[in-house]
Nucleic acid binder design. Structure first.
Lengths: 222, 222
DNA sequence: GTCTATATCGAGATAGAC
DNA sequence: GTCTATCTCGATATAGAC
């Protein structure tokens, strides 16, 4: 809200930097707690306690609990889609602007699956984003429904790669692929591991990516 | 739970039936509101107002708001899995106990997709169940993770149908298929319809089922 | 900028009359 | 069984001292 909140980083020390540190502590703690327990199950008190800052920090730095959630959502979404766009761009370069289905899907799925790796610093961010999709505020839901620009790049590429398919077919198959992706929640992995009696493990994300790509590519080829 | 709840409609009015009617009104209103707005965003006051009953009804008939949610979850889950088990049983009968992948998946996916039809009386129940999966109480999450008995019937059938695949492969592909299914939320359909600029429609559930089955079957064949 | 103390509100649950 | 009125709690947000 105040101008200083926007230019917190990159200034010289003292008062300004302390502010940035506190704000980051809140941001990180909130993201983690939201990802693990869900938005509605985490209070501002939980967040500030975990961050080791005072109760008023959330409202001071972000305006409200809702605005904090939206802030985290915006930043992580932008980050993820930047990685995806970069990979799609590279796939275009490698294939004279017309990459095959598998490379398009790889650009879509690889960034989030990288984030899922047990030691990746964005592991918790991915869980946050998956949760925010279904548990977020009205504002988040509106953005999710309205802003499909990042997806359009992928649907356009898929339409070009499979001109023999109807547009309807392509959109539905993209929808199915995204469904596979969004199901990568901690709770769903646990359930799968119970069902398979420990024969599955999501720790090897490279293998998981391969599995997902093969499944989705075959689905597109059908 | 009491016999009277099952025979609410079609009787003359007296004391016992009034109870059942009120309880059913609460149950139905709660299911609808939870499905549309999410568990945490609906208050007991919202429910009783929508049902046209007094505020105390929820606690009197169900014990608590949480218990009400769990009750709905239990009843609809049992209903859905009964339909699935019946279809799997029929597929077994048709195929000497060894149905092909597509018929197994059809038994898994057809009941929920039938429920999804615009005029189906269980349309809202399906949205409730999908939501409860990620937004439910701790008790629901525990059941979801612990009780996989209904899924085991399907994973066993799939293992038998594809003895050439490793068990790990089969479990993961079942997981992907369930991800496709769980992505069938109103909000996700809306998003898809925006992306496709109206070229997609989930109203034709028969067509949607065909699409999903073909995609998943191809994924299993990969 | 930070913190404590508190205002304010909305929620679930319940007591007790009918 | 049903209803009204109310208890009690936990939440967000904020005022005001430092």
């Amino acid at each position: 809200m105040s101008p200083s909140t926007e230019i917190a980083a990159g200034h010289e020390a003292d008062a300004g930097e302390t502010e940035a540190v506190t704000k980051n502590l809140v941001f990180t703690a909130a993201e983690r707690l939201f990802a693990l327990h869900g938005f509605q199950n985490v209070s501002v008190r939980d967040i500030t306690a975990a961050a080791g800052v005072n109760l008023a920090s959330v409202n001071y730095h972000f305006g409200s609990k809702d605005a904090l959630l939206f802030d985290i959502f915006k930043r992580r979404t932008a980050e993820l889609n930047r990685e995806r766009a970069k990979m799609l761009h590279e796939a275009n370069d490698r294939n004279e602007g017309a990459p095959p289905v598998r490379e398009i899907l790889a650009a879509l799925l690889t960034p989030p699956l990288r984030w899922l790796a047990p030691d990746h610093e964005r592991r918790i961010s991915l869980q946050f984003l998956i949760r925010a999709r279904s548990e977020g505020t009205d504002e988040i839901r509106t953005v999710l429904k309205t802003d499909v620009s990042h997806l359009r790049r992928f649907s356009d590429a898929l339409l070009k790669a499979r001109p023999d398919l109807s547009a309807e077919d392509v959109y539905w198959r993209l929808h199915f692929t995204l469904g596979m992706l969004h199901n990568n929640r901690f709770a769903e992995f646990d359930r799968l591991n119970v069902l398979s009696e420990g024969q599955t493990s999501e720790a090897d994300v490279v293998a998981l990516l391969e599995r997902m790509l093969s499944f989705a590519e075959a689905g597109f080829a059908a």
